[in-house]
C-alpha cells in the first residue's frame, strides 16, 4: 500500500461515519438505539453508503486504468462506450417492463443494463482482435483506432437511447427514463449492493492485474511490446475490468460522469505518476468523492433531491475546463 492509498483510506474512514449521520433526518451519535434510528441506518443509509463507495471505487479505478491505457490524462472510462451501452440496456428495460413477470421486475433494469455492458464489451473485443493483430502486422492504428471504435460505440448507443426516449410508450415512462439516466443513489437497498459490489470488486482486481502492463505503455506501444507486454491480453483485461466496474455502476445507479476523469488527477500528485501506483488509490479516492457528493446532495435544502449524476457533472465539468487550461500551460 503506497502513501496515496493510505491518505485516501484514512479520508474514507472519516467520511463513512459522517455520511451515515447526514441526511434529511440528522442522527446525533448519542441517538444510537433501537427503533427508527437503527432502521434508518441499517436499511437506508448503510446500503446507500456502501453503494456510493462501490460505484466510486469502480469509476476511480476504471478512470486510472483508462488514462494509463490511452496515455492521456483527459481520458475517461466512458470513452470505451460501455456506460452508454449499459444505459441503453437499462432504457430498453423500461420498454419491456410490461412483458416482464412482476417477480422479476426489480431485477430487470440492472440485469438489462449489465447485458448492455456485456454486449458493449463483446463488440469491443471483436474490434480489438482486429486492431491488435493489425498493430502486430505493423499496420498501425492500435490504441488510437481502438479508441475511435469505442467512441463510435458510445455515439451509437447514445443515439439509440435518445431514440428509445423519443418513442417512449407513455409520458410516465419518459420521465422515469430521463430521471434514471441522471444517476442517483436515492432509495437503494442491499439488493443493489449485492449486484454491484461483487462485480465491481472483480473488475478492480482485473484492472490491478493490468497495472504493470499499463506502466510499460508510458514509453509507447512498441516499447511496451519490446518489454514483453502482449497488447491483446492487456486489452482483454482492460475491457473486462472496465466493463465490470462501469457496467455494475450504471446498472444500479445510472450514469455518473466525471468521477473517472477527475479522480486520478486528485491522486496523481501523491504517487510516482505511473498508472500502477494510481489504480488502488484512485479506487479509494473515487469512493470518497462519490460518498461525499451523495451525502451533500442528500442534505441540500431543495424541494426534490439533486440528482447525484447532475451534481457530479456540475463539479466535474468546470474541473475539466481547469485541466484543459493547465494543459495549455504545459503543467500536466
Amino acid at each position: 500500500m503506497n502513501r496515496a492509498s493510505l491518505i485516501f483510506a484514512v479520508l474514507l474512514a472519516v467520511l463513512v461515519p459522517l455520511s451515515l449521520l447526514a441526511g434529511r433526518v440528522w442522527i446525533a451519535p448519542a441517538d444510537f438505539g433501537p427503533g427508527n434510528t437503527l432502521l434508518i441506518l441499517a436499511e437506508l443509509r448503510l446500503p446507500r453508503a456502501v453503494l456510493a463507495i462501490t460505484i466510486g471505487a469502480g469509476l476511480g479505478a476504471a478512470g486510472a486504468a483508462m488514462q494509463g491505457y490511452l496515455r492521456n490524462p483527459l481520458a475517461d472510462p466512458g470513452l470505451f462506450g460501455i456506460a452508454p451501452m449499459a444505459a441503453l440496456g437499462a432504457v430498453a428495460s423500461f420498454w419491456f417492463s410490461a412483458a416482464i413477470p412482476p417477480a422479476w421486475a426489480p431485477w430487470s433494469l440492472p440485469l438489462m443494463a449489465l447485458a448492455g455492458a456485456g454486449l458493449g464489451m463483446a463488440l469491443l473485443a471483436l474490434i480489438a482482435g482486429r486492431t491488435s493483430s493489425d498493430a502486430a502486422g505493423g499496420a498501425g492504428g492500435g490504441i488510437a483506432l481502438f479508441t475511435l471504435a469505442g467512441l463510435m460505440l458510445a455515439s451509437l448507443a447514445g443515439a439509440l437511447t435518445a431514440l428509445a426516449i423519443t418513442l417512449a410508450p407513455n409520458p410516465f415512462a419518459l420521465s422515469e427514463i430521463v430521471m434514471w439516466l441522471n444517476g442517483a443513489l436515492t432509495d437503494r437497498s442491499w439488493r443493489e449492493v449485492a449486484i454491484a459490489a461483487p462485480l465491481t470488486a472483480a473488475g478492480i482486481a482485473v484492472l490491478a492485474l493490468a497495472a504493470r502492463s499499463l506502466d510499460a505503455l508510458t514509453l509507447g506501444e512498441e516499447a511496451a511490446r519490446s518489454m514483453g507486454i502482449e497488447p491483446r491480453r492487456l486489452l482483454a483485461l482492460l475491457v473486462v475490468g472496465i466493463g465490470l466496474t462501469v457496467g455494475a455502476g450504471v446498472a444500479v445507479a445510472g450514469i455518473i460522469g466525471f468521477v473517472g476523469l477527475v479522480v486520478p488527477h486528485l491522486v496523481r500528485p501523491f504517487t510516482n505518476r505511473l498508472p500502477s501506483s494510481l489504480i488502488l488509490p484512485s479506487a479509494l479516492a473515487g469512493a470518497c468523492l462519490v460518498l461525499a457528493a451523495d451525502s451533500v446532495v442528500r442534505v441540500l435544502p431543495l424541494v426534490t433531491e439533486l440528482r447525484l449524476g447532475i451534481a457530479l457533472s456540475l463539479i466535474g465539468a468546470p474541473f475539466f475546463g481547469w485541466l484543459l487550461l493547465r494543459m495549455r500551460q504545459g503543467r500536466l
Binding site: L217, L219, G220, R273
Partner: peptide
C-alpha cells in the same frame, strides 16, 4: 532483446 524506440514521448512525468 532490449529495444529503444526513436524519440519516444514519455506519457507521465515520472
Amino acid at each position: 532483446i532490449g529495444y529503444l524506440p526513436q524519440a519516444p514521448d514519455i506519457a507521465w512525468d515520472v
